[in-house]
Amino acid sequence: MSLRIGIAGISGRMGIYLAEEAAAAATLSGGTSRSGAGPAGAPHFPDIIALARESDVVIDFTHASTVQAHARALAETETPWVLGTTGYGPEDEIAIQEAAKVIPVIAAPNFCTGVNLVLLLAEKLGAVLPASQYDAEIVEMHHRQKVDAPSGTALAIGRAVAAGRGVDLGDVIASGRDGHTGPRKDGEIGFATLRGGQIVGSHTVMFTAGDEQISLTHHAFDRRVFASGAVRAALWLHAQPAGLYGMRDFLKL
């Protein structure tokens, strides 16, 4: 019997792609949704517990407000959890870590292979290029419906640069500059957020010195790239012991 994959939020834009990719690669056990609807022929479950009991792994790209409840439910049912939700806070992170003591969890702001290669390169550049000479700036653009800013992927790029520099992003972040901000501080990692149209996702990290600039850019043209990556991660995760994993573990980067 093939792996049964459940989709939390199956009627959403990402949920529909996830359902299609899961059905192509394994068995789609069904999903949950606020509307009570989903792709034709896909079983609908009343809550995350019911879905988890009929699934070997659950993929979750829902909303930050669901993280703690989903963490408890999936730990209770001992169901592996692929978490692509972004914008959650410190208490949610604690709930994820607690769940990972019981089940395997892979949490990532982006399941696209290309983005994760950018994260790896951003960390290496952050380590090699002196912060006093190379100003790091991250520019991202997404569709007009996106509710969190900067995006989870942009923040992940910032954390990668900060890790390369041996600092904490929270200590050097400069996001949403406005008004008379004064000169740029050495070591800042700046963020610019753009929203408009139906841009799937565009991220650029720039290291700019007085005599050169190095840029890394990733453009996503189709949300399916995130769905296919998440389903591949689900197939891998099911065979792992309890613990908290990232895309570097899955991609062996």
Rank of each mutant, 00 (worst) to 15 (best):
E76Q: 14
A156G: 05
R144I: 14
G152F: 10
L117W: 10
P90L: 12
E91D: 15
A26H: 01
G197P: 05
A19V: 01
A160Y: 03
P43Y: 04
A127C: 01
D148R: 01
D222V: 14
D56G: 09
I157K: 02
I157D: 00
H44K: 03
I48N: 03
V147G: 02
P104M: 13
D249F: 09
A26P: 04
G30D: 04
T27C: 02
R224T: 13
E212T: 12
T153M: 10
A8C: 06
L51C: 03
A24R: 14
L237R: 06
G36M: 09
G30E: 02
A107R: 09
G229L: 09
L83A: 07
F191R: 01
L216F: 06
V128D: 07
R13N: 15
V147Y: 08
Q240C: 11
I94N: 02
G158F: 00
A156C: 03
G229D: 10
A220T: 15
I106F: 10
E93G: 06
A242C: 09
T77S: 05
V161G: 04
G152C: 09
H70A: 07
Q97P: 07
G84Q: 09
F250M: 15
V82W: 11
E212C: 14
G182T: 12
L125E: 07
R165A: 08
F45Q: 03
I199Y: 00
G89V: 12
E98D: 15
S11T: 05
G30Q: 00
V67D: 00
I5T: 05
T181H: 11
K185H: 14
V147K: 13
K185M: 14
E212V: 10
R223W: 14
P39T: 01
G164N: 05
C112I: 13
